[in-house]
Amino acid sequence: MNTNAKPNTAFWIIAVAALLWNIIGVYFWLLEYFLMTDEIRATIPAEQVELMANAPAWSMYIYAIAVFGGLLGSLILLLRKRLAIGLFLISLIAVLLLQLYWIFAMDLVEVMGPQSLIMPLLVIAVAIFEYFYSKGAARNGWLV
């Protein structure tokens, strides 16, 4: 393993895309828990507002771990540090806990319809990709 290998252009594109994705995640966490106004709430389907209102208190913290773990992982990935792997793993575990809870325990599909699975499955897929990509980057010697 070459620990001084120079990452290719795709690495930088993926790392920046991961950073942007996770910034969006942090924004939505802030919006849901701190910035939600009645005007914004009025633009969201009533079923979704009810689901959000009925979510357990612990989900706020798991959501925070997921998005801030991903954000930190992305920043550390851009710095080419192996710590990104662990941060992405923590984020992935939190994503799985939260999204699977929403899908199965909160009856997401029953309340919102089958199209409501698109975003949770996309979030899970991206979290899995970020974790395994960071492991591959370390294997390629791009992370120290």
Rank of each mutant, 00 (worst) to 15 (best):
W29T: 03
I62V: 15
Y61T: 04
A46D: 07
L92G: 04
D38F: 08
M52H: 00
A138C: 03
V67R: 08
W21K: 00
M112N: 11
A127T: 10
M1K: 06
Y131G: 06
V123Q: 10
L20M: 13
M36L: 14
F132P: 10
P7A: 01
T3R: 14
E130P: 10
L20V: 15
N8F: 01
P56V: 05
A105M: 10
V109Y: 01
T3V: 13
M119Q: 15
L78N: 03
M36A: 08
Y33K: 01
I128Y: 03
K135V: 13
G136K: 09
V16K: 00
A55N: 11
Y27R: 07
P7G: 01
G70T: 09
K135L: 15
P114N: 05
A15Q: 06
V144H: 01
N2C: 09
L89T: 07
S116M: 08
Q99N: 15
D107W: 03
E39G: 06
G86V: 09
I124P: 02
R139S: 14
V144T: 12
L89N: 00
M60G: 05
A127H: 12
V67G: 04
G136L: 12
A10E: 10
W58L: 02
A66H: 11
S91Y: 07
P114L: 02
L87R: 08
P114T: 05
E130T: 15
G136S: 14
Y61E: 04
F132K: 07
A84C: 14
N4L: 13
K81P: 11
L121Q: 11
